[in-house]
């Protein structure tokens, strides 16, 4: 199933206001510690990296490990600097990159 991303990012902000960025991505985050009924280890497949950019400049990024829950729900912040595009990329263990973006007007 393709990962679905839900986001809540304000579309407007005052200059230098601190905005809240809320995201949820549907993903099993298979930890690599579990076994199936036959005793085979289920291979690890998680989102190992999250990067948030504002007009292509990195604002916040994170490295994730198997202790992150399934269907990660995250909240972090950003200082509203200029109008433009906020993009969040989730890097999957299998090489895929799940991406979402939102436009914001500052001022």
């Amino acid at each position: 199933m393709p990962a679905q991303i839900k986001s809540r990012i304000p579309s407007k902000a005052a200059k230098d206001e601190i905005i809240e960025i809320k995201l949820q991505i549907t993903h099993d985050m298979e930890s690599g510690n579990r076994k199936d009924a036959a005793g085979n280890v289920l291979p690890r497949r998680i989102i190992n990296k999250m990067v948030c950019t504002w007009n292509n400049e990195v604002v916040t990024s994170a490295d994730w490990h198997p202790s992150m829950s399934a269907n990660p729900f995250i909240v972090f912040y950003a200082r509203a600097t200029e109008s433009g595009k906020i993009t969040i990329k989730f890097h999957d263990d299998n090489g895929e990159v799940h991406e979402t973006s939102a436009d914001i007007t500052v001022g």
Partner: peptide, 22 residues
């Protein structure tokens, strides 16, 4: 089983050093 949970990298543009997750 794996002690690492997550590592968050901030910049001055992060506004505040606060994160929530599960």
């Amino acid at each position: 089983p794996n002690p690492g949970v997550s590592s968050w990298h901030f910049t001055p543009r992060s506004g505040k050093a606060e994160v929530s997750f599960r």
